[in-house]
Amino acid sequence: MGSRLTRPLVAAAFVACVGAGISAPERAEAREIVRLNFQAEPGTIVIRNSERRLYLVKENGVAIRYRVAVGRSSEQWEGRTVVNGRHVRPAWSPPAVVRRANPNLPDVIPGGAPNNPMGEGALTLAGGEYAIHGTTAGMRRSVGTAASFGCFRMLNEDVVDLMNRVGVGTTVIVKR
């Protein structure tokens, strides 16, 4: 299930990830180093909805490429934003669009709960209720598909890796 983060929970219920980083809960399977076929500044995150891939641009024309679940076709978006928060095992409050699709969800799912769609971590994005986040064990198979409500879902081990490489203020470019 995709998700949007609500502003009150970002401030009130998330545990900030400060300096020390977080440890990966399991071995990474989805990331790889690739040559870029587009231009972007090193340190930028580029998400390509059509590829269902997230690129962390490095020096010398290469990037770390991760598989991601992107928004369903009706929920995909494009644009430029920045990471405005880094959160370890954040609590999650379903936004209205998710609640309409799943009316029996609780008001808040605690961080670390097995049914919390944020998984091990979340990078919140400025200008909306979207995030790049981990996933629940039951939703791992959705990574690499168009399945969310607009967020970008990664394997937990990959979101942990990405969170350890980027900080608040990182530019994020979402393309078709």
Rank of each mutant, 00 (worst) to 15 (best):
G111Y: 09
G127Y: 11
G127F: 10
T124G: 01
P117H: 09
D107S: 13
I109H: 00
T124H: 06
A126I: 05
P110R: 06
M118T: 02
P114S: 11
P103V: 10
M118H: 03
N116L: 04
P106D: 05
I132D: 02
G111D: 03
G121M: 02
L105M: 15
T124L: 02
A126M: 14
A131L: 05
G128H: 13
E129R: 12
G128Y: 11
N116F: 08
G127T: 10
P114R: 11
M118V: 01
A122W: 04
N104Q: 15
N104E: 15
G119E: 04
G112W: 14
A122I: 03
T135G: 02
P106I: 04
P103H: 09
L105A: 12
T124S: 15
G119A: 02
L105R: 12
T124E: 10
Y130R: 11
G121H: 06
H133M: 06
A131D: 05
G112E: 09
P110A: 14
A113S: 14
N104M: 14
G112S: 08
L125A: 05
P106W: 00
E120Y: 06
E129D: 15
G112H: 10
N115E: 15
H133I: 06
A131N: 02
Y130F: 15
T124P: 08
H133D: 08
L125N: 07
M118S: 08
G111M: 06
G127L: 06
N104A: 14
N115Q: 13
V108L: 12
G134N: 00
I132F: 03
P117L: 12
A126K: 15
D107P: 01
D107K: 01
G127D: 09
G127C: 08
P114Y: 13
P110M: 03
G128P: 05
M118Y: 05
I109L: 11
P114T: 04
I132H: 05
A113V: 00
G127K: 09
N116T: 07
E120C: 07
G112T: 08
M118Q: 04
P103I: 11
G134W: 01
G128Q: 11
P117D: 07
T135I: 07
G119L: 03
P117K: 07
V108N: 01
M118E: 07
E129M: 14
A126C: 08
L123I: 06
A131Q: 02
P114K: 09
N115T: 12
A131H: 04
A122S: 11
G128L: 09
G112Q: 10
A126W: 14
G111Q: 01
E120K: 08
G111C: 09
P106M: 04
G111F: 11
M118R: 00
L123K: 00
P106Y: 02
N104P: 04
V108K: 05
N104F: 14
T135C: 13
G134Q: 00
G119F: 07
N115V: 13
M118I: 01
Y130N: 05
P114H: 10
I132M: 02
T135Q: 02
I109N: 00
H133F: 10
N116I: 05
P103D: 08
G121R: 02
G119K: 00
P103T: 05
T124C: 04
D107C: 00
N104S: 15
T124F: 09
G112L: 10
A126V: 05
P106R: 00
A131T: 07
E120F: 08
